[in-house]
Amino acid sequence: MSDNSVKTANDVAENFEPKILVFACNWCTYAGADLAGTSRLQYPPNVRILRVPCSCRVNPQFVIRAFQRGIDGVLVAGCHPGDCHYTTGNYYTRRRFLLINRMMEYMGIDPKRFHTRWISGAEGPKFQQVVTEMIEEVRAIGPNRKLRDDMKVTVNTDDIVASVEADTKVVADNV
C-alpha cells in the first residue's frame, strides 16, 4: 500500500485506486462516518479517516503534506458553522480554507482533489455521498503527480551558479 510508484500508463488506467485522506472532526464528522458504518451504508474503501479534535485543528500544511506524501485527494470535514463543540473553531476553519482552497488552485492543484465539507453526526448518508463522489471524481482525473516529494524535481544548480556568477561580475565591474 505504501508503494507510490506507477509502472506504466496502462497500470494507471486499469489499476488506479485513489487514496483519499479525510480529516474528520471528532464531534461531528467522525460520528457521521460512524453512523454511516452502523447504518451499513457502503462507500469505497479508498478513504483513510484521520480523527482530529476539531476541523480547526487541521493546519493547511497538513493538506500540502498529504499531497507531498502521495495522497490523491484530501477532504477536511467538521461540524456545521454554529454547531462547533468548541463554539467557534469551525468559523476559523472556514476563513482559512476559503483562502487555502483558492491558493491551491492558484498553485495549479485541481480543485477536485481538495474539498472542505460540513458533515454533522446525524449525516451518515451525507458522509457516504461526499466520499463516494470524491473518490469517483479523483479516480477519473487519475493519480496526483503534483507537489509529490518522491517526484524529486531537483533544483537546477546550474542556473543558480550562472546567476551568482553574473551578479558577481556586475559587482566586480562596479567596484
Binding site: 493547511p60 500540502i64 507531498q68 483562502l99 507537489l147 524535481v153
Partner: peptide
C-alpha cells in the same frame, strides 16, 4: 527540491 520548496513557499505566504 521543488516539493519542499513549494511547501515552504505556500506556508510562508499563508
Amino acid at each position: 527540491n521543488a516539493s519542499e520548496n513549494q511547501f515552504y513557499g505556500v506556508t510562508r505566504a499563508f
